[in-house]
Amino acid sequence: MIEIISQPWQWYVAGPSIVAVMFLLYFFGKSFGVSSNLETLCTMGGAGRFSDYFKKDWKVNLWNIVFLMGAVIGGFIASNYLSVDLPINLNPQTISDLSVLGFENAGDTVVPSELFGMEAIGSVKGIGLLLMGGLCIGFGARWAGGCTSGHAIVGMSNLQIPSLIAVVGFFTGGIIMTWVLFPLIF
């Protein structure tokens, strides 16, 4: 059993597994949406003093924060006890495209050292890029009203037109970053 779980999971295992988690959340009377936790964390941190937007009762969302803490533990368990599947099986073209941008050994680690390594986060540019990435994610998720979980998976499953528009937006932004901005940044 543990040997089967320890293999890298193919898409047809990972996708349905996500749906199983989503099902259980709804079955227990809750919902599936990760980015709303960012809002709850702001509220818990006292953001209500600066904006009425955060004047909410965070206790009703505590279950989701517990879910998020579980996700951290799940990441720890998977990486320490369920074997590490590195390097991942990337398209050779992806590896060579990244090499052109200055990213070496693509796929040998979970995240590139060129962005997340000690040297990178010791520079203003490195910290700035990570901060900027996070800023766009947080700002964009709340503006759009959801992220990959709430819009791409729940919203599209539930045939919501706004979610389809949001996902078109996600890919528009992602393609602009990857195809246009990456060659300028790196």
């Binding site: 890029l129 900027m132 990435g133 996070g134 800023l135 766009c136 994610i137 947080g138 700002f139 964009g140 998720a141 709340r142 503006w143 759009a144 009203g145 992220c147 990959t148 819009h151 706004p162 979610s163 528009i165 949001a166 996902v167 078109v168 937006g169 996600f170 890919f171 528009t172 932004g173 992602g174 393609i175 602009i176 970053m177 990857t178 901005l181 990456f182």
Partner: peptide, 14 residues
């Protein structure tokens, strides 16, 4: 959905 989505996508890729 569209404007927020584009901002999110920029961050997601970066």
């Amino acid at each position: 959905a569209l404007f927020g989505g584009i901002i999110f996508g920029l961050g997601w890729a970066l």
